[in-house]
Design a protein around this nucleic acid. Structure first.
Ligand SMILES: [Mn+2]
Ligand SMILES: [Mn+2]
Ligand SMILES: [Zn+2]
Ligand SMILES: [Zn+2]
Lengths: 158, 158
DNA sequence: CTCCTTAATGAAAATCATTTTCAATAATAA
DNA sequence: TTATTATTGAAAATGATTTTCATTAAGGAG
């Protein structure tokens, strides 16, 4: 459970109100599921099934709609790891200590979070972002870094 | 037209034969289209339409099948830029002078190829790849780096 | 060059994640 | 409490990609 960014209850309610969104049980349930799913990179349907356990009334459509809102607000990252469905992860700010990148096994689709070289990477990213935004007049908000290859298990099976 | 990696004719035919694939008009047409589409990041359907001009007999299914093969062989990169369809680009080896990364405008979906900071990035990537593959016993084949934000036009429209 | 095996192909149907529609419900401002 | 309107669920629609299957054509053997 990620703490520190969630002070007590309702750390997210303010953000919702600020954007003109209403506070609903479905939205709270989605956020709760995501907070408990660190490292899991859940799909919409997986989140739906999880939410469904405590809130059987919430439909899959609402899950999709909530995830889109959360993504637009920057509270959730949406990834494409190449398995045909989007996967989601609670966003920790770019400079947060939870910031990480991914190793994707192209064989079994396993995802490994890593942050061992994040410091060097982020330093370079900052430099690159600065250069790029100047040269192309482009306002950079996020970045995506993924390494693709074969995990230990899949390599051995070759 | 990318030269240097295509020596005369049929630079790709050897690769095909080596993998047990047959040489067909459809496959040649797809490769030709991709070679003439630098910086365009075409979708399967766009490639289909382009191929269709000279080869009306080639169907969309074959385009998809060919692109999958090319991607498996590492001759083509497949990207998800967030507009709901896959987009393709002829691969230049990782250390090729054509290697580049992308700037993606989340508003108008425009893609900008850049390679100005590629050298520093690649140097860091090599270091990171080495560390990661050792720590996680992961064999890294490719990487993906994209920056998301607003292009000049879309930022001004705000 | 001809024949043979089987990979490759096109058209149509099937998949399936995600989106849209629309009438019913519920969050919030007054 | 009431009025306003965002939110919601169910069902239908969408649309990119995949699968099926009968037909065609690469390319190796002779
Ligand atoms: Mn992660
Ligand atoms: Mn490109
Ligand atoms: Zn694996
Ligand atoms: Zn733009």
């Amino acid at each position: 459970m990620p703490y520190g960014k969630c002070q007590g209850h309702g750390w997210w309610q303010g953000k919702f109100r600020g954007c003109g969104y209403r506070i609903t049980a479905a939205r709270e349930a989605v956020l709760n599921t995501l907070m408990l799913s660190e490292e899991k990179h859940m799909s919409a349907e997986e989140i739906y099934l999880s939410v469904h356990e405590n809130n059987p009334a919430v439909g899959l459509t609402t899950i999709y709609r909530t995830l889109e809102i959360l993504n637009d607000m920057g509270m959730v990252f949406k990834f494409d790891f190449g398995d045909g469905r989007a996967r989601y992860e609670l966003a920790s700010g770019t400079d947060d200590e939870n910031h990480h990148h991914h190793l994707v096994c192209t064989a079994c689709k396993k995802i490994i979070d890593y942050k061992e070289f994040i410091d060097d990477e982020l330093e370079l990213l900052r430099k690159t972002e600065k250069g790029l935004s100047e040269k192309y007049n482009f306002t950079i908000n996020t970045h995506l870094i993924q390494f693709y290859g074969l995990c230990e298990d899949c390599r051995d099976t070759r």
